[in-house]
């Protein structure tokens, strides 16, 4: 997986009688190891673009290629495999599985992809230590703070060493200190593990970390700048 290429992406949504434009002929190329922020007001198409690049949503038209794979043509199961092996997701609302402990949440993706128990355990303890959750491995999400939960979600997203991490408003529910810690962690992972990050945000503090800032409005890219 070297890069993500989106070509002429269009996506509309029906909301009652109204047709909302999510993406309007969006074309973009993101290189491996990039650290990209998608910014723009609510409804500008950030999340829609993120979902399309992550194979969670299919565009009405246009092409998305990750590495050499055209993912806009793939079925549900094949898309699930692409997400499982290549992409890590961090959502705004933590989205942990409540019946699993922090460690089990982190191990979930590795377990589904078939990694053996010893390796899983080694990696999950290590990553939880790295995100500052040592000693909290066996706590369920309900017994973790918002910041801690988001760290578990980040740990889960990166533990299986994906080539791409897609984060949708990862700091929206975090205080400024925790936000900075999280962004420092993202930068470190980007620099040391060459993981590509694409972060949808309208938090100015987050945008400062980006190597490349893409601004969107009404489903269109209105600026694309390297920083």
């Amino acid at each position: 997986m070297t890069s993500i290429v989106c070509k002429d992406l269009c996506k509309t949504f029906q909301q009652g009688d109204e047709v909302i434009t999510g993406l309007d002929n969006v074309s973009i190329t993101i290189e491996k190891g990039d650290f990209v922020c998608l910014s723009g007001p609510s409804g500008s198409g950030k999340t829609t673009l993120l979902n399309a690049m992550g194979g969670l949503d299919t565009p009405d038209s246009g092409e998305i290629t990750i590495g050499r794979v055209r993912i806009d043509k793939l079925g549900k199961a094949a898309l699930a495999d692409i997400r499982l092996h290549n992409i890590g997701f961090v959502f705004q609302a933590y989205n942990l599985i409540p019946v699993l402990t922090a460690r089990e949440n982190v191990e979930f993706v590795m377990q589904v992809s078939g990694l053996d128990a010893e390796e899983r355990s080694k990696r999950s303890y290590k990553i939880l230590r790295e995100v500052g959750l040592e000693g909290m491995e066996n706590r369920r999400p309900a017994h973790l703070s918002g910041g801690q939960q988001q760290r578990v979600a980040v740990a889960r997203a990166i533990v299986s060493q994906p080539t791409l991490v897609l984060a949708d408003e990862p700091t929206a529910n975090l205080d400024s200190v925790t936000s900075s810690q999280l962004m420092d962690l993202f930068v470190e992972l980007n620099q040391h593990h060459n993981i590509t990050f694409i972060i949808a945000t309208h938090d100015l503090r987050v945008m400062k970390y980006a190597k490349r800032l893409i601004k969107m409005e009404d489903g269109k890219i209105i600026s694309d700048e390297k920083q």
Binding site: A77, A80, I87, F89, I97, F108
Partner: peptide, 16 residues
């Protein structure tokens, strides 16, 4: 529903 969506997003196949 949300959890099932999450599991799918994380790569769990529909048959699982």
């Amino acid at each position: 529903t949300r959890e099932i969506g999450l599991m799918q997003a994380l790569g769990m196949r529909p048959n699982m």
